[in-house]
Amino acid sequence: MRPPVLEATGLGVRYRRGWALRDCSLALPAGRVAALVGPNGAGKTTLMHAAVGLLAPARGSVVVRGQAAFVAQDKPLYETFTVAEMLTFGRRTNLRWDQPAALKRLAGLDIPLDRKVGRLSGGQQAQVALTIALARTPDLLVLDEPLANLDPVARHDVMRAIMAEVAEHGLSVLLSSHVVSDLEETCDWLVVLNGGRLQVSGDIEDLLAGHLVLTGPAELAGTLTGAGGSMGRVQVVAASRTARQVRMLVRGEPPLDPRWRARQPGLDELVMGYLRSPESVALPGLAQVGR
C-alpha cells in the first residue's frame, strides 16, 4: 500500500483572533479524491494553506509526500498576462512542467493562448488555473472551492477535467466545498471540519455503509440514547424529533426492535448529521471502537 499522500499530526494554526484549526490529525490515502467539507469558517482554507506551505502551523505538523499543486479560492491569475504568458510563468517557476499537455488541454477547451487572462470568462479562468496546476504533474492537487462562482456547465466541466486527470495519472486530490451535492459523484474520501476541529475522515463508501438513518416512534428514542448516547452496538450521531416521531443518524448495526425503520443515509444526510452535532466524531481510530 502507498503511504498517505498527506499527513497532519496534531496540527494547530492560530490567527490573531484565535485558533482556526486545533489538534487536527489526519492521513489522506494516495490516489483518492478527498472532499473537505464544513461550514464557512470551519478551517477548510486554513488546513489547505498549511498543507501547501502558505501558513506556518503554530502546533504540530503537516507533510505532503511528493509535490503539491494548489489552486486558491477565486483562482488567482495575473490578469494582465496572456494565457500563453501564464504558462510561461508556470514553466519558469517549476522544475516539473508538462508544456505539451498544458497546450493540449487549453486547445481542447478552445481557450485562445493570446487572450489576456482578465478577458476570459470565469469558467475559462478556472480552467487556466487548473491547467497550470496540472501541468506541474503534481502528486497531490489541492483545490480550494474549485466550483465556487461557476455556472452549472462550468462546474460540470471542471469536475470532469479533475476526474479525467485522476483516472489518467493516478494523482491524489483534496478539494473543498460547502456544497456537498457537488462532491457526491466524484469523491471517494470524506473529511469534515467543523469549528476548527476534525470531525470525520474516512472512505465514503465505508462511512455510508456504517451509518443508518433510523425512524421510529418518539418513545423508542430512549432505548437507543440511554447512557452516554449509545446502547450496545449503536452510537447515535444526531437526532431530530417531532411530537410523535424521532429520526436519528446512528453508527452501527440496525436495532432488533421491528418498530424502527432503517435505511442507508445519503452523503448529504451524513454530513449534515455530523455538522449538527459537533461533539460526534468518526475518525479512523474511533471507527474501530464503533464496530
Binding site: 506551505g53 502558505l54 509535490q67 499543486a69 488567482p76 495575473y78 517557476t93 516539473r96
Partner: peptide, 11 residues
Amino acid sequence: RGTHRLAWTQA
C-alpha cells in the same frame, strides 16, 4: 489580488 497564493505555491 490574492496572486501571492499563486506565486508562492509554485516550486
